[in-house]
Design a protein around this nucleic acid. Sequence first.
DNA 1: GTGGTCTAGACCACC
DNA 2: GTGGTCTAGACCACC
Lengths: 125, 125, 125, 125
Amino acid sequence: MLKVEFDNSQPIYAQIITVVKKALVLGTLSPGDKLPSQRDFAAQLKVNPNTVQRAYRDMEQLGLTETLRGQGTFIKQGDKLVDLIKGEMLDDLVSAFIVEMRSLGCDDLKIIAHIEHKLELEGER
Amino acid sequence: MLKVEFDNSQPIYAQIITVVKKALVLGTLSPGDKLPSQRDFAAQLKVNPNTVQRAYRDMEQLGLTETLRGQGTFIKQGDKLVDLIKGEMLDDLVSAFIVEMRSLGCDDLKIIAHIEHKLELEGER
Amino acid sequence: MLKVEFDNSQPIYAQIITVVKKALVLGTLSPGDKLPSQRDFAAQLKVNPNTVQRAYRDMEQLGLTETLRGQGTFIKQGDKLVDLIKGEMLDDLVSAFIVEMRSLGCDDLKIIAHIEHKLELEGER
Amino acid sequence: MLKVEFDNSQPIYAQIITVVKKALVLGTLSPGDKLPSQRDFAAQLKVNPNTVQRAYRDMEQLGLTETLRGQGTFIKQGDKLVDLIKGEMLDDLVSAFIVEMRSLGCDDLKIIAHIEHKLELEGER
DNA sequence: GTGGTCTAGACCACC
DNA sequence: GTGGTCTAGACCACC
């Protein structure tokens, strides 16, 4: 049972995909696992079934899932899948973060310094 | 002349505030500078004047600007203002980044490692 | 059901805030009470809903109310809230009164004497 | 040369009358003094001459001034005039103050106590 | 139904 | 020209 909090920074179908990806990265879902039916998932998420359908379609397109007629939608098999997804997500996060820090005038050293500073502060607590 | 691209992740007035803050941090705007009039800024941004006014009012509330009736809205004087804003913005970015990285299963060392790795890759290019 | 008579000495939204504060001081409203919805209150006061919203937003900013999305706007909990508001309102009244009496040439003793005189006169009626 | 700061709590002509009355009470103006010409006064106050005319007309109606054709407008003679005006103004202030304090739930004792408290606080400074 | 945002536009005071 | 207030009304998200 996946939980989601939707915001309006992205279309909901995109946020659903992110949730599935995060679950994969964290091991909550694994390759071969069956996803909820579109209808059930829509009910869980209190979302229109068409929205879930769009997410499922896109995930299949991305090579993340495969749909077996009459059986449901499954996370695709493949040992490298999780690492791949995780790599992409981390890379996107890190890239966006660097872009934003630079837009505030930080060079590489300052970016690292700010992160380390923050982590140290938390460590002391 | 400040540029803005609005998305729908936040109200427009909030994005206007962010633009002004960024301009301050980058030195495009400085304490004492006059902001565009509400009407002019609204025209530049292709936004309703009331939306700009909401942003200006909130900025005044935040201590970022001061308004002189009939003369306009100005970035507040005060040497520490820019550093304060910059500190806040960096801190927010860094905090959010750390939260997101952890939600993907990264501990402190991995967070640092991912940043450094990315920066090195870029350096080689 | 709160009543209001608007004059033009202050913006309407400010007068709405004063009405709510007075109701709190007099016990017509209590911490935790729900205020009328923006739409209802606007209808009662024969005022635009945006004007009520401005008042509600400012009251939230002042720490007087809190808003629960989709549920309404409520007087904030907190035992000291009413005393605080009452103290502020009385203090403002008294200060302004003293300033005005002095602008007519009254010293402290005369101010007191005038008040006492007036109260005694009324007592005899 | 009388100074005025106008607000919008009352029509400007009424505020002009108050200014003249205050000047009388404070001795800045005395019975028999000539007021500025309507034209001059309007210029000083940056106000429409008709507004001054309305104020002068009302003051004459109130028995405060008299106009001598071709000579101007004068504060009326009469030893009790100033005391009368002063009495009225103080009385209005005090009455309004009492009404407002009661509207916040204060009885006579509390009204006096609040005034005395405030005056003592100021005395200590 | 609730509040939140935004537009379009009027009218005002102060400069 | 500048900001401040207000109206009328649309559209949205959340309940």
